[in-house]
Design a protein around this nucleic acid. Structure first.
Lengths: 101, 101
DNA sequence: CGTGTAAGGAATTCTGACACG
DNA sequence: CGTGTAAGGAATTCTGACACG
């Protein structure tokens, strides 16, 4: 279910090193709803490797001059596609096990 | 080569939450050579998910009353075994590609 | 041996705001 | 719109040491 890629465990400083983005940019993209880091008990942001990958995609698109609102839509589309893929796999597995019973 | 499991990106506070171990214990096991976290520029420790797993194994063994020196030997043995496995796989791959050429 | 804790300092992160554009 | 920066405060982490056992 929850793989390492999805676990929110990386602090913003490390994410900044990993992506080359400033803390300001990382926080701003969150403000615009492009990603949702977790939070520690006292407010510290926690990111997953998935978040880091998302940020790298954002950086690419920004360099191409794309605005955050547009990038947000693109990311949502990707997420939807991924969900459909996941459900198809789940469906296949269910069909498989129904047959074996 | 370097998967997410091996990337040193988690701070000690998060590792403490993930493992249930105190900061003191985590640092002590390092002092005894049972694991080697990375370091940020200014001295902060950085752990990988692999390190987190190692710490959980250590916690189990400690609960059984095993001393750190003994646990260290066990971990080294595991590491050696893993290395041998990795090399066998590499060997198989090499053999395979030699055949296909 | 393994772990807790108080101590002082350094580095990190947070938020809200002003600036420029 | 997107990003930098200075500001003040709070939370994190570091090291070396003393304590107990």
């Amino acid at each position: 279910m929850s793989s390492y890629k999805e676990k929110k465990v990386i602090s913003i400083g490390i994410v900044s090193e990993l992506t080359g983005l400033s803390l300001r940019k990382i926080r701003y993209y969150e403000e615009r709803g492009l990603l949702s880091p977790g939070r520690t008990g006292k407010g510290g942001r926690k990111y997953s490797f998935d978040d880091v990958e998302t940020l790298m995609k954002i950086a690419e698109r920004r360099e191409e001059g794309v605005q955050t609102a547009e990038i947000k839509k693109e990311l949502n589309k990707e997420k939807t596609k991924q969900k459909i893929r996941d459900e198809m796999i789940k469906g296949q597995l269910n069909a498989h096990f129904r047959m074996r019973k």
